[in-house]
Design a protein around this nucleic acid. Structure first.
Lengths: 191, 191, 191, 191
DNA sequence: TATGAATGAGGTTTCATTCAT
DNA sequence: GATGAATGAAACCTCATTCAT
């Protein structure tokens, strides 16, 4: 009862939402279009998500988890700070290239004021280890002495910019991935 | 001639649009709220802008021009590449801090698909000198050999991230402005 | 299944449309007034008819069918050409007198450019037998050798004129019905 | 002061109204489009006609007068009843063929409830002689003993039907004009 | 639980008319 | 008188959400 009956149906709705949001944007996407694309009735959507805001927040958390999975699985905890940071960078950039719709929707969601503070916190949790890594780098004088959140935000924004160029010129994707990381690393590394 | 279309009224509408868009987002902002806030009748908005799309595009161009004014006036054409880039950085970051609503709305507009390709081109024009500067830096082996658009995008995204922290911790604004620029410069400078 | 789309409700809307259109004309009739008069919510009208144009076309077909029913049921296929034509005449004129609102609205619809070519074709179909009768009369030299569509148009326009007088002077309705038919018949009959 | 300054301007507006009404119908024609087409300002229209209804009624009377001019000038008062009726028929049908836009607009106006009773009366006046002719025919036992208005209405409706076929098949215009009149004459002539 | 018809508030835009210039 | 900007009341239609089936 806490979880509604069919997990399949829930996922169908979320997948459909990604599709529709990617095509039309958040506000221009009627819930009716989403339920239709998911192959369920209009009303059914609301037994899985009480409101559209609920759906949007649920999707946000889901996508964040999916991204975390892509980034943090296989995280080389034993290797150097640089290796770990590069791992994160590569995973992020690879996931984004492989899941362009999800990436686009996540960007839309990030700037939406439908997303609650709570969702943002929950969405952030799995990425805590990034901060840990940054802190370690700073303490060991490998990285500049900057607030860890600032480093993280910096990485994310640089990765996004990089991503855009990879998407626009797929044949030079590897080039941008490398150069982008290099730029970032030079920026934050000490000395 | 009858009453001429008043520039004041146009500006009142655009100012009201900034206010309302900043508060509620693009799609959640009824034109009726904008005209009310501007102190004109609902219909009047449509004598100045044929449609809501038109208003949005007009506002985009206006804000871009305003930003260009802030950034490119007093541009130190005779000084070093680094000085020139820092000038741009500082101006951008200062304008954003001084005009948070405008900044927020410009961000909203950038990602809206109401903005036409034509508007984007027009909005970009005044910033062409940034690219020139980047190109000069690359040719003189001061900067890494990267596509100029990539450098520009990188700067913009880093500045945005920096901005966010300045806004969140105004008492450390100067700190972030400097550190952000340093990070960027180290990233793109050669050697 | 959820509530099925109710035929009753559809008819209530169409009936209300006849009422309102008859009173105020096509263009001066807001859909809101129609839904209100039908006892349904404003939005409900649009689950039965996607647009106002749709409603108008649906009504046109419905009225045409209703009229066809009145005219072609009991059509004396075995009797003389004159008897058959008189049957049509009488039925048309009787229906119009009995359903003045429907008649008025049908006239409004006929000249509206909201009606699609497709609707006109569908609306015409049940009356094909009139043409057949006319053709038979011509081939048998009972009627003047005129294009059948011309005969039909002629009948319709004469009947309309007749109708108007019947409506204006109901006590002489029978007189006009007869005289009108006589005029028509003398006009088209050979010799 | 009773008559506004420029008769030219009044006519320009009326001509433009015919154009626009013919293209878009009565209700779908904004006054702004009419004034634009007439080459005058939006407000100017309202110094010549207080309201849109006023314009519509003014146009109705004008067109009626124009039609009367075409039909009643050169009216062969000395010739036989048949010759006189044929004259009317031919003039009506010729005018309609020569002025299709005016004809169409007159039809639109006839069924519009913007037209006041007063306008209808005024519009009818110049055609009184038709009734006189009909009455004479009846009294002389040339025509069936029918109400004169009924004869007139009958003629008008038949002529309209005829007109439609002439417009649709211009190469057979003469054929329809003749056959239509014959049909009418046979219908109303005695014996 | 699943369905989809029903709801009605709210959005953008049009347009006849007024009125400052 | 002429102009056209200003007005604000509708109009049509959409859509998140509810609820009868």
């Amino acid at each position: 009862m806490a979880r509604p009956k069919s997990l399949d149906k829930r996922n169908a709705i979320l997948d459909a939402a990604v599709e529709v949001f990617a095509e039309r944007g958040l506000e221009a996407s009627p819930t009716a279009e989403i339920s239709k694309r998911a192959g369920v009735a209009e009303g059914t959507l609301f037994t899985y998500f009480k409101t559209k805001d609920d759906l949007v927040n649920g999707l946000y958390r889901d996508l964040k988890l999916e991204l975390a999975d892509a980034m943090m699985s296989g995280f080389p905890r034993k290797k150097s700070v640089k290796a770990r940071i590069q791992h994160i960078w590569d995973c992020y950039v690879t996931w984004s290239a492989a899941s362009p719709a999800q990436k686009r929707v996540l960007d839309l969601l990030k700037t939406s004021d439908r997303i609650t503070e709570e969702s943002r916190e929950i969405g952030y949790a799995p990425f805590a280890e990034i901060e840990t890594t940054a802190r370690e780098g700073i303490e060991n004088h490998i990285l500049e002495d900057l607030p860890t959140e600032f480093v993280a935000a910096t990485m994310s924004s640089l990765a996004d910019a990089t991503m855009m160029f990879m998407a626009m010129q797929p044949e030079k994707a590897a080039f941008y991935r490398e150069k982008g990381f290099l730029l970032f690393w030079k920026g934050i590394a000490k000395g």
